[in-house]
Design a protein around this nucleic acid. Sequence first.
DNA 1: TTAAATAGGACTAGAATGGTCCTCAATCGA
DNA 2: TCGATTGAGGACCATTCTAGTCCTATTTAA
Lengths: 149, 149
Amino acid sequence: MLRLSKLTDYATVILSFMAKDEIQVHAAMEIAAVTGIALPTVSKILKMLVNAKMLISTRGAKGGYILARMPEEISVAAVISALEGPIALTECSISHQSCEQASGCDIRGNWGLINQTIHNALESVTLADLTRPAAVPEEVMIPLSSLYR
Amino acid sequence: MLRLSKLTDYATVILSFMAKDEIQVHAAMEIAAVTGIALPTVSKILKMLVNAKMLISTRGAKGGYILARMPEEISVAAVISALEGPIALTECSISHQSCEQASGCDIRGNWGLINQTIHNALESVTLADLTRPAAVPEEVMIPLSSLYR
DNA sequence: TTAAATAGGACTAGAATGGTCCTCAATCGA
DNA sequence: TCGATTGAGGACCATTCTAGTCCTATTTAA
């Protein structure tokens, strides 16, 4: 199914809520209330996004979270990476250690291309695109052939 | 990590081996020996591919498996679907049942676009492309804006 | 000083995944 | 006809991963 984890899904929901008024500080509890996601889970996700330098946190009373960058500068690819690590379809695409497959590994190079293609697609969509349903994002072409050298 | 299951990875290895001489019938045991994947696992994958009408099987002595279509006509998207079901990043993209998120669901439409984009990318790469490392696949453009109405 | 928030990590239950195995059915060839 | 070979179908298990919860420490505003 090529699935994205539930947490990543939640993250996009949370981030798009925050993107609506990006200069406002939001507490975890507020976000939980608005999105309907349980507080501990929201909290966990927010911490991950802070670690990924995607959000900035303020501790203490009146504290909370705020976007570190403009919604236009936060790509879906970045969100996925923050929650799930590097975007790659296959194991070998990440760690280039020896893979034990006897004959199959000449495929790897091409998997790299597929990964690249998908990465480009995800990179081209930003939080801003997600929050504005009818908006047309900037034109992005992904000519497969250009990925081959 | 946006990961593909190991079985799907294996499937591509198996299929590319079979694509090398596509008119030959290959037994599961032979494939296991060549690819280095354990026989029961190979067997399981082959059965799935048969169910997906991607391979044709012959029972009995001298039996085995053969590609149902030409390598050029088998897309990576089809392989993934065969092993993992419909390609979709989020749950809601598959079953359009009500999703309980209070405010986040205006995002859904745009997730659909991302899914479509990725699907197109995977659809545009075929088994033939995977087996010929240096080959340039047919030019495929994926203008994001065209996906919006 | 107290209340409100986040930081960091441990922990658990449940689901999914990868992998194995067994029995039945079909086909070929001697 | 019979036996060997090969796939079909499904049950099954162990391990890993995921989602989700909770606890304690730290920071800050009032």
